[in-house]
Simulated scan of single mutants.
Amino acid sequence: MTQSLPAVSITAVGVAALRAHESRRPDRLFDDPYAAAFHAAGSSLLPVAPGETPQGGLGALFARQVAIRTRFYDDYLLAAGCSQVVVLAAGLDARAFRLGWPPGVRLFELDLPEVLAFKDEVLAAQRAVPSCERVVVPADLRGDWAGALRAGGFDPAVPAAWLAEGLLVYLSREDAGKLLSTVTDLSAPGSRVSFEHRSAETRDGLLARAKATPGAERVTRLWQGGLGGEAPEWLRGHGWAPTVVSHAELAVKYDRPGDETLDGFVTAVRQSSTLR
């Protein structure tokens, strides 16, 4: 594997390692049969300390969070009932291959060209076959990605389920608002969107803990905070009806108790349309 990846995309290799770790558990919350291959192919790109594993350092901090997050988004996308699914900054997400999609679903994956090239090389080596119609859209989310998405066959008149997994924290407040404004413009009534929500930046929050973890600066320096705790209010003000679920609630639901924080997820349904 010869490709190089942008710094922000290299973190996806680390997340793949956590998904592979979860998939090996007898009580796993999901099964990702491609995660180990992604990690193996990209492990040389990870600037990790010698001996660092999913059980230590940042891995220990994020392992349960990634497991709960992955399962939550799996359930969200399958329950959305939309024939169009859009995964923003798709990275090494393999839901087009590992989930049991109903007939007629078209799943769009947006990311930088080099990320998608890396991903497709690994998937080809695994002889992976998508379980829905998969459309790869090379695009920079800081540019005209809406045009690229439309060119790929996306229909803004049809409700879509949007996923921004692990994305907004890497964006400034302005860029996060711009991204979600574009999502709003492309969303017919009945569309859905989901992403991580942090109700407060407290000393015991996940981000604060990560910043205090030795060696974590290589990741935490990339974080810009996104909308912070204002996401539900932003969504309400732009024609969405949001709901928030906490990690604590999901930990009980998935039987994964632990040291809970105020972190969680927001999911919203489009109530009105401002299509242009």
Rank of each mutant, 00 (worst) to 15 (best):
R276Q: 13
M1P: 13
M1C: 12
L275R: 14
A41Q: 10
R24G: 14
P242S: 13
G225A: 11
P242L: 09
G237A: 15
G51H: 11
D204E: 13
F118T: 07
D93Y: 11
K211T: 01
F72K: 02
G14E: 10
A200D: 13
D140E: 07
P130V: 12
D263W: 07
P26M: 10
G56I: 07
A36T: 12
P103Q: 14
G258S: 06
R71P: 05
P138M: 03
E260L: 09
E249Q: 15
S131C: 08
V48A: 14
G239E: 12
G59Y: 06
R221Q: 12
R218L: 08
G143C: 09
R198E: 08
A60R: 12
S83G: 15
P156K: 06
A251P: 03
A67M: 03
V85G: 04
L77T: 06
R173F: 01
R276P: 15
P26E: 15
L99Q: 11
W101D: 11
T261Y: 03
L99S: 09
T213S: 06
Q126S: 11
A176D: 03
D175C: 01
A7P: 04
H238W: 10
L168A: 09
A148D: 04
G147E: 08
Q271W: 01
L275M: 07
L163K: 02
A164L: 10
W234E: 08
K119V: 09
R64N: 02
R276G: 15
A60Y: 02
E201N: 14
A67L: 07
F97V: 05
D75K: 08
G152Q: 06
V129F: 00
W145S: 03
S181Q: 12
G42M: 13
F30L: 12
I10R: 15
R98K: 12
S4L: 10
S246W: 00
E109G: 03
L5G: 12
V135R: 14
L58C: 06
A128F: 05
V48N: 11
V8C: 10
R192M: 12
G229I: 07
W234L: 09
H39V: 10
A216L: 06
A210Q: 05
L167H: 00
P113M: 09
R24Q: 15
L88R: 02
A40Q: 15
F30N: 05
L58Q: 05
P26F: 08
G81S: 06
A16G: 11
L141E: 05
A17V: 03
A60N: 04
L171P: 01
A16C: 11
E217H: 09
G147D: 08
T11P: 04
L186N: 07
V87M: 12
V13F: 10
L180A: 04
E217P: 03
F265M: 10
R25Y: 04
L123Y: 06
H247G: 14
A128N: 07
